[in-house]
Every structure is written in structure tokens, then in C-alpha cells.
């Protein structure tokens, strides 16, 4: 094991000067960033890019829209799933109220991931056997069709990872133009959460003969509902 000071001093000697005490002045960065003119446009471009990556998406404006959208995507599947597995829908502890009320109207009971078991391995197993993982999303990126999720105690990171399908809810006003704006906003919060997950479409690989294949490890199907109040 090498001592930190020794390690750092060695680098300073290679750079031919003592290690600066103050943070070096940041470099100037000037790149023209991608910008759209309004929330509506951002939501629509976000959705377009998300779909281009192979995700499903819709903008909903009312409770009724939400019900229609979920029914259209999943139909009677959840009812079939519940027959084999009452924990088929695994979710964060809290979802946007429009989503919570839609699930209760549809009578699709949600299993709350963090409360599903005290033992982490059991929780992973429950999430891995679920059919659909349901989360919200803190921010979105229009340019890349990306949803951004900060970890916290009420939110399992595995919910968006282990089930074969992932459904996320995001408000139109949370969609930013580009990655820069998202990182700027997260920085402003102070210490970042333990994990920030940025997800752009389903799990993909081209490792076998450069042939694109979906769902090698992460979710195979990904859905986003953009809520517009």
C-alpha cells in the first residue's frame, strides 16, 4: 500500500512543481449546446428520441389519458401475470399521484420494492421475478431521449434494472434540453446521491458479429409516460 502523500508528491515531482493548494481555475468551455424553445417541444423531441432507441412512450394530459395509455400498452397482461405472481408489478414507494390513482383504478396492485423484504437478496429475487418495474424519473434529456433517476431510500435501484420491463413517469417540465443542464442541476443539489442512473432505451449489445440485440442484461422493453398538466 502506498501512502497518499507519497503518491501525490511523486506526481508533483514529475510535473516539476509543488501540488497547487487552491483548486486550479477551471478551463473555459464554449460549445454551442442543443436548445429547444419550449417545454412542449422538449417533450415531443424527447419522446421521438426515446422511441427511436426502441422505447415506447406517450404524452398524457389527464387521468383518463393515463388509463387509456396503460391499458393500450399492457392490456390484460397484468391480470395474467398476477395469476402466477402476485408481486408481478414492483414499484418505488412513491409514484406521481396520477400514476398511483391509475394503478388503483385498474386494480393492478403494486408491490413496493423497499418493503417487499428485509433481506436484500430476497428483494433482488422479487424484482427479478417481477414482470414490470415502475419508477418515476427526476429529469429527462430531450437530445438523447434519456431518463434520469437519483437514488434515495424510498427508491430501489433494482426496480429499473431487474424486471424484463421498465415503466417510468416523468413530467413535461422536468425534461431538459441536454446533458449539461441536467448535470448542472444535479451539481446544484450539493453532494450527489449514491447513484444517478441515466437510461437511454433498452439494454443493448452488438457483441456478436455486430448484430444488434436487445435485452441481454437490463430491461428488454422500456416505457415512458410523459405527464403534462
Amino acid at each position: 500500500m502506498t501512502n497518499t502523500n507519497e503518491f501525490i508528491n511523486h506526481l508533483a515531482s514529475k510535473l516539476g512543481r509543488p501540488t497547487p493548494i487552491e483548486t486550479p481555475p477551471p478551463v473555459e468551455i464554449s460549445v454551442p449546446q442543443y436548445r429547444l424553445s419550449n417545454t412542449e417541444e422538449r417533450a415531443s423531441i424527447f419522446l421521438q428520441n426515446w422511441q427511436a432507441l426502441g422505447g415506447k412512450g406517450a404524452i398524457v394530459k389527464s387521468d383518463n389519458d393515463m388509463l387509456q395509455c396503460l391499458k393500450e400498452w399492457f392490456g390484460d397482461l397484468p391480470v395474467t401475470w398476477f395469476k402466477d405472481n402476485p408481486q408481478a408489478l414492483i414499484a418505488w414507494d412513491m409514484l406521481p399521484s396520477i400514476a398511483e390513482s391509475a394503478f388503483s383504478t385498474l386494480n393492478w396492485p403494486l408491490t413496493r420494492y423497499t418493503q417487499s423484504s428485509l433481506d436484500p437478496r430476497d428483494r433482488y429475487s422479487i424484482a427479478a421475478h417481477a414482470e414490470l418495474g415502475i419508477t418515476s424519473s427526476d429529469l429527462g434529456i430531450a437530445l438523447s431521449g434519456t431518463i434520469v433517476m437519483n437514488s434515495d431510500p424510498l427508491r430501489g435501484r433494482a426496480v429499473s434494472l431487474l424486471p424484463p420491463r421498465h415503466l417510468a413517469f416523468i413530467e413535461t417540465t422536468k425534461i431538459r434540453n441536454n446533458l449539461f443542464e441536467v448535470l448542472e442541476e444535479i451539481s446544484a443539489l450539493g453532494t450527489p446521491p449514491a447513484a444517478i442512473e441515466m437510461i437511454s432505451g433498452p439494454s443493448r449489445t452488438s457483441d456478436i458479429e455486430m448484430d444488434l440485440s436487445i435485452g441481454v442484461h437490463g430491461p428488454i422493453e422500456v416505457y415512458v409516460v410523459v405527464t403534462d398538466n
Partner: peptide, 22 residues
Amino acid sequence: GQRLSSYTTILTPPKKSADSDG
């Protein structure tokens, strides 16, 4: 040639004591 890779993860470890995963 992607705008962002499918999964870009920023970890600021270790997990917070109340976090369920990580």
C-alpha cells in the same frame, strides 16, 4: 455513435445507510 450510452451511471459511493440497494 450514440448520443449517450444506454446506461450512464454516476456513483457517489458508498450507499447511504437507508438506501435499499448498492
